[in-house]
Write a protein that binds this DNA or RNA. Structure first.
Lengths: 339, 339
DNA sequence: TTGTAGGCGTTATCAG
DNA sequence: CTGATAACGCCTACAA
């Protein structure tokens, strides 16, 4: 059933049917009612492809993410999808993994499907080597590109992110102020946000007058991140003598650290402070529960959608919006009250 | 730039361009090369809407789920998306929440967008009261409907699921065989799979000759499931005297149980066995790590995609495919070896 | 207030 | 092997 069938049954022209469908006011109540009843009776739905062809949009946004089964990304995708839907947009989801080739191909794919915009979720899409970001700039010639937790200055690219550097700076400072100054920073990725976090740690250490940095990069080997962390720490010589604090770049790593501590009989938080990042549910599963940093994911996603809608409306919108992170103290630390 | 522009620049007709684009063999190598070079130079991409209009498909599948930020669903969505993409399909993601109205609206929305099929993820879509499932049957008149962990017998509806009843039966039996016979079953939803699990528990109890069932339904109140569980157990009179085993309908509930045990000084697994369900990462975060049941999510998703592709190919495919669950023993239980 | 007709960019059929 | 042309179903000036 198409618009011609409806028009025939209703005894009007297709133009009138179209007007009714699109809530155009220039239709008499009587004809409108007639047309609507025909539509109702036959369960007619306008063909979205034809509409898309004429209007050059199907009101669809592409979401590009490395892996939507990752807890953090899954949450982001959820909030973005909900926000977009509220504004009448659908989401084409595309998980790319981490390979450059696949990222580029996926981008092309979404653009070839004529999405109205692409939201890139996570800090794995913006590379340090700026030449690597060329494919994003290229895409932005066609449609606005939204980066969630990424940063890339270019026309038609809009960034919404959290100041992860300040987040780690804050939690590190709390360790130090509480007398835990021999801190190991553990991380496992080399993304944009990851290097920001590392910077935050370094800056806090330096600002406190501590000269020695201690970082541990975990290379994924077993596919089980928690196990990888335990293993890496077990191989760390004189760990217990050296450290009284671990700051992890995410909650799962922190949990690995807790398991290591448990294994060695190191008491947390008495002998060792531990903190994670992301304020994820994982951090609530362990005992003691993990001190973490809330990076305002929902707010970021909400803002990203708002910005995009503004761009669509032709408004001038901020190219970069930055949220600040909050430390969430829990039982793996025992921070001294700030005065 | 459209197909006409290409044809003009290449000095051929649009029909030929179309043939080249679609890898039709009836084109001379020479013209093909010419056309391809024009396409390359101009970065031409066929308009997907026009194509969709003509072919009546954009090779897109709708994924309907309650909430893609839920760990279990997020994983399902990931595996489905990857499987479909491998087969050349894109995914339109739609999170519906749990309200009937929204579910129906979302279904209509996806159908109006002319997706080729809809995958419904999770057991919250099939209701006990069969009249409530009418909207799914209705949709199946248009396109094949795939249920992941749902069951609904109707033409053009295909179900892929795990035998959760047997899964819980197995783990319950292991408790009993190991001498832990005073078992409390905890759950928090009333979905299809949830009631199957409950049945599994009941059957195992009965088969072992135990007359007393003990179940605890957790009503969500704080929004923090773990806390809800701890609270509910704290209100349970004489818990310690009564029980030496807790079987939870998911891993998070099991973690809540662990927290309660810790709080009361009940030793796990010495005094109390605990098991969860889903084989999620949550279960690896706690100490001791949670014995759980692997419900074969990846296999289910993979099979669901395979079935769908078979349906598209016009093959006769199974209306229902059932996987069996595996118990994953970890440190919250100490099962006796089976002889 | 309503109808007519052209355009959106493909694919597919059929003739050459 | 190639080209002309009719769908596909909708939107929207422009006319009436």
């Amino acid at each position: 059933m198409n618009i011609y069938d409806v028009s025939r049954q209703a005894g009007v022209s297709i133009a009138t049917v179209s007007r009714v469908i699109n809530n155009n006011t220039n239709v008499s109540e009587k004809t409108r009612a007639k047309v609507l009843s025909v539509i109702e009776e036959n369960g007619y739905t306008p063909n979205a492809f034809a509409r898309g062809l004429g209007l050059n949009t199907m009101k669809t946004i592409g979401i590009l993410c490395p892996d939507c089964s990752d807890a953090y990304i899954a949450q982001a995708v959820y909030h973005i999808e909900q926000g977009l839907r509220k504004n009448g947009y659908d989401c084409l989801l595309c998980c790319t993994g981490f390979e450059k080739k696949v990222k580029e191909k996926s981008m092309e794919l979404l653009i070839s499907k004529r999405v109205d915009s692409i939201v890139m979720v996570g800090s794995f899409y913006t590379e340090d080597d700026d030449a690597e970001n060329e494919y994003i700039r290229l895409a932005s010639k066609d449609i606005p590109i939204m980066l969630v937790n990424g940063k890339l200055a270019a026309p038609n690219i809009y960034c919404t992110l959290c100041d992860d550097s300040a987040g780690v700076y804050d939690v590190t400072s709390l360790f130090i102020e509480s007398g835990h100054t021999r801190i190991l920073y553990i991380y496992d990725t080399l993304s944009f946000s990851s290097s920001n976090k590392l910077d935050g740690y370094r800056k806090a250490i330096k600002d406190a007058g501590i000269t020695e940095e201690n970082t541990l990069f975990i290379k994924q080997s077993s596919g089980e991140k928690i196990d990888d962390v335990v293993r890496a720490l077990s191989e760390y010589k004189d760990f217990e003598k050296k450290f009284d604090g671990i700051i992890a770049s995410d909650d799962i790593i922190a949990i690995g650290a807790l398991k290591y501590a448990k294994k060695c009989g190191i008491s947390v938080p008495d002998q060792l402070f531990v903190s994670g990042y992301n304020n994820s549910e994982f951090g609530r599963c362990s005992e003691p529960e993990v001190t973490t940093v809330d990076n305002k994911l929902e707010a970021i996603c909400h803002q990203c959608v708002t910005t995009l809608m503004g761009v669509f409306a032709g408004n001038s919108m901020p190219k970069m919006t930055v949220f600040s992170a909050d430390v969430v103290p829990r039982a793996t630390t025992d921070f001294k009250e700030r005065t």
